[in-house]
């Protein structure tokens, strides 16, 4: 344990340095992919708070992502002069509200009906997006021009790759750090209790409905924040952001990466982003390949990539200790 600490600190230091230096090391296109990876990391991590930590399988996470993405775009277009951070904040707030509404309707529903209803709600949000095209732009989507962010000492322009990268890294990095610490907080502990034994929790004096609702609002807000940055990054948002396809995407990312640990979904988000980029250059049917990969993982590697990694590491560790006399 003691010898591992400085080593992991060194790793973290190196990773931090690489993240800060990335805009100087990577060509613009690669930097954009990394930025997108960070956005989807937060989306996948928020999803895993439901799936991994609370044990709730949702098929509707894109509704929060989409609400955040659209609310941000609508604020940017409708309120001239608004700062892009405020627009992202309002997008997050809208997603929090969506979490509150959907969460309170789903309070008494668990297990399979929960999975089914989240999908139905996602379909509802998508249908609203389609019908209400004066607000969402319908099939055309909405173009936005994210305004420059004046921070006093420096001015960041979200339209420029490196500036957008740093903005994303700082804001979403903070959110990711917060998620990482989340399980250790009192609320994180309550969520674990909820997953393990909801009945006992109630007999211990916890109002589990409140815990579930708070969790829903919380993950809704986080997904909404990711959606807001998705809009800022692309300077555009379409119905794609709120579709079942987007839900499938976050599900694939989270599951491919592994639901058992915090880094799993982050790994999955980057993996998915890069593989999609690679495959979509080769073939139009990359989604089919992703789907087959997903089914393969469900069948043969339910722990995801991080589970595979841990399995290999522990096997190596075992053979190492075994070879020592």
């Amino acid at each position: 344990m003691t010898s591992q600490r400085p080593r992991s600190l060194a790793w973290m230091g190196a990773a931090a340095a690489a993240l800060v230096a990335a805009p100087y090391l990577l060509p613009p296109y690669q930097l954009r992919l990394v930025t997108e990876g960070i956005v989807f990391s937060l989306f996948a991590v928020s999803y895993n708070l439901l799936l991994g930590h609370a044990g709730l399988l949702s098929f509707g996470h894109a509704m929060f992502f989409g609400v955040g993405a659209f609310a941000t775009a609508i604020c940017l277009n409708g309120l001239p002069g608004i700062s892009c951070l405020l627009a992202a904040g309002l997008g997050t707030l809208a997603a929090l509200l969506a979490g509150l509404v959907v969460g309170s309707l789903l309070l008494r529903v668990k297990g399979t009906p929960f999975a089914l209803l989240t999908l139905a709600f996602n379909a509802l949000f998508f249908a609203i997006g389609v019908k209400w095209h004066t607000l969402t732009g319908g099939d055309d989507g909405l173009n936005v021009v994210p305004p420059k962010l004046n921070l006093g000492l420096l001015i960041l322009d979200p339209g420029k790759g490196p500036d957008m990268y740093y903005l994303t890294l700082i804001v979403l990095g903070a959110a990711l750090f917060f998620c990482w610490r989340f399980t250790a907080t009192a609320m994180g502990h309550s969520v674990l209790l909820l997953r393990e034994n909801e009945e006992r929790m109630r007999f211990l004096g916890y109002n589990t409905n409140v815990t579930r609702l708070m969790l829903f609002v919380f993950v809704g807000g986080l997904a909404g924040l990711a959606g807001s940055f998705y809009t800022l990054l692309n300077a555009f948002v379409s119905l794609d952001a709120i579709s079942i396809d987007m839900t499938t995407k976050v599900l694939l990312m989270t599951f491919l990466g592994g639901t058992g640990s915090f880094p799993g979904p982050v790994l999955g988000a980057f993996f998915y982003t890069y593989v999609q980029d690679y495959l979509s250059n080769l073939t139009d049917n990359w989604q089919l390949i992703m789907g087959v990969l997903f089914i393969g993982m469900v069948l043969f590697a339910p722990g995801g990539l991080s589970g595979l990694g841990q399995g290999i590491a522990s096997r190596l560790g075992r053979s190492k200790t075994a070879s020592q006399p």
Binding site: R181, T185, A186, M187, H189, M214
Partner: peptide
């Protein structure tokens, strides 16, 4: 339970 939700117990 109402207080310190984000404290680390």
């Amino acid at each position: 339970l109402r207080h310190h939700l984000l404290k680390e117990p």
